[in-house]
Design a protein around this nucleic acid. Structure first.
Lengths: 266, 266
DNA sequence: TATTAACCTTGATCTAAATCAAATTTAAAC
DNA sequence: GTTTAAATTTGATTTAGATCAAGGTTAATA
């Protein structure tokens, strides 16, 4: 039986600059399976024991050539490698990329604090994208092997995982619906800003301010626009006072109008 | 304990024209939770008892004005209504739509035989799109209430649902990746044809032939193209002998080239 | 089979975004 | 703090797809 919400994960890494903090467990998607459960009359707190730990992902762990990009952006896992763990973002951002035959790296997703990475690999037991940290970021890790050996014994834990996965299915579908069939640069960016602000609401504590963290290049790549086009749309939105830009921080001044734009088709 | 694969669902509706047949259970996404499981030493076959039944969706059940569109396309459920069941398509096709404030109906997904509809509503317990049958179609229905009352007692059933949901998460992510950031009409259509053919492979028995069933209008709407543009790209693909068109039947003649196009960005 | 209405295709023009080219701002390295 | 490189913005031109307008098909109905 669930014994209520508690801070489940030990913080073994803390970002120093205060620019982004670690998300509270109650706001994390992983929370459903971090809950202590009852097994054979005992309370089993997976997070306390071995399932979750917070690990930093930053400059140090790159075996790649020593250039700027790799120093900043370190890889959590590579596409097509076997699934070992699923992760939840604790701080920072991760970009999810697939590389096509011609070597082009396409951004297929962004994951902000509290969001899951790699749970869609449970099916094929192979990651279907690379996960790359933007700047200094950290994750909570759940070993799939350990979780499933535990889960077989504890129905409650399974129940929680079902919750987690069904929610995830919802999140994915909603994401898909936000972007499929949107062609104009205006509606794409509006949809993107609304989407990401909403996802960060609990973490940032604001429904109208947003720290993108990722570069314009990555946003443009994700949306399928050229960086020049994205830049122009950002400029236009600011001129029309829909948003206010302070570097990577975006203020949504007229959210209603942005929503209208986001829902606008053709 | 799972006792292996068997035809789980009674066929209470059969399409007469032979144009599309009912999918075999072993090829259906729902199959994971239709498996007989062991409970208290007994075999519990949910499909045999009450959980699944095949129901037709066609002209009869429409309470809408008696015009052509509604006669042919009947609604399985409406967006924003409370979740009661999740469905698997048995035959035909369903389009998933959301209606925006201005009344425009946007196609946000297509579901072919063997695919799930509505499982992403488990989270909010409210459907987040309308599901509309294209022509005569049929589904298997699982009552969420009945399933969950059953599932609490049978861990094995939960295990199967986890399988189902994690696979679904994968399918959604893959779908998303196929389309996000694709802008050229060529790459969108190529990605669409590859995607849908792959999804129908088990059902249709062909990896190079495809019965779209849905109208060009719906495809264009889904992809965010104008019907004229879609028509031109179809014509171009045929001229270049990438595909051969026979009404709604599309033959993929040069799949490799289509894949290249689909992965092509910029 | 004729009639009508969806549905789909083709042509001409216009427009939004890509592309090419530079300038400017920002951040990293020395 | 200065230098250098990366990231972002702005401008001019080109192009792919939207739009407007007909013309054909196909399929449903009488």
């Amino acid at each position: 039986m669930t014994t209520g919400n508690k801070l489940a994960n030990k913080v073994v890494y803390q970002q120093g600059l205060g620019q982004h903090h670690t998300i509270a467990c109650e706001n994390c998607s992983m929370n459903a399976i971090c809950q202590p459960v009852e097994a054979d009359g005992q309370i089993l707190d997976l997070s306390k024991n071995y399932l979750s730990k917070q690990i930093p992902v930053s400059a140090q762990n790159s075996e790649l050539p020593h250039n700027h990009t790799q120093i900043k952006n370190s890889t959590l896992f590579k596409e097509q490698t076997p699934l070992t763990s699923i992760y939840a973002v604790c701080s920072g951002v991760f970009k999810l990329c697939v590389t096509s035959k011609d070597g082009y790296e396409k951004v297929v997703g962004l994951r902000y604090p509290g969001e899951l990475i790699g749970e869609d690999a449970l099916f094929l037991e192979r990651y279907n994208y690379s996960a790359i940290a933007i700047g200094q970021s950290s994750v909570c890790e759940v070993s799939v092997e350990q979780f499933s050996s535990c889960g077989k014994l504890v129905p409650e834990l399974q129940q929680n995982l079902i919750q987690l996965l069904s929610k995830q299915s919802y999140v994915r579908q909603t994401n898909f619906q936000s972007f499929i069939g949107k062609k104009s640069a205006d509606s794409l960016l509006a949809a993107f800003l609304i989407n990401v602000t909403k996802r960060n609401e609990a973490y940032s504590g604001s429904s109208s301010q947003l720290n993108l963290i990722v570069s314009r290049n990555d946003v443009a790549n994700f949306l399928g626009l050229r960086r020049e086009t994205l830049s122009r749309v950002f400029a236009k939105f600011q001129k029309e006072e829909l948003i206010k830009i302070e570097g990577k921080i975006i203020h949504l001044l007229k959210k209603e109008l942005l929503c209208d734009l986001a829902n606008f088709h053709s």
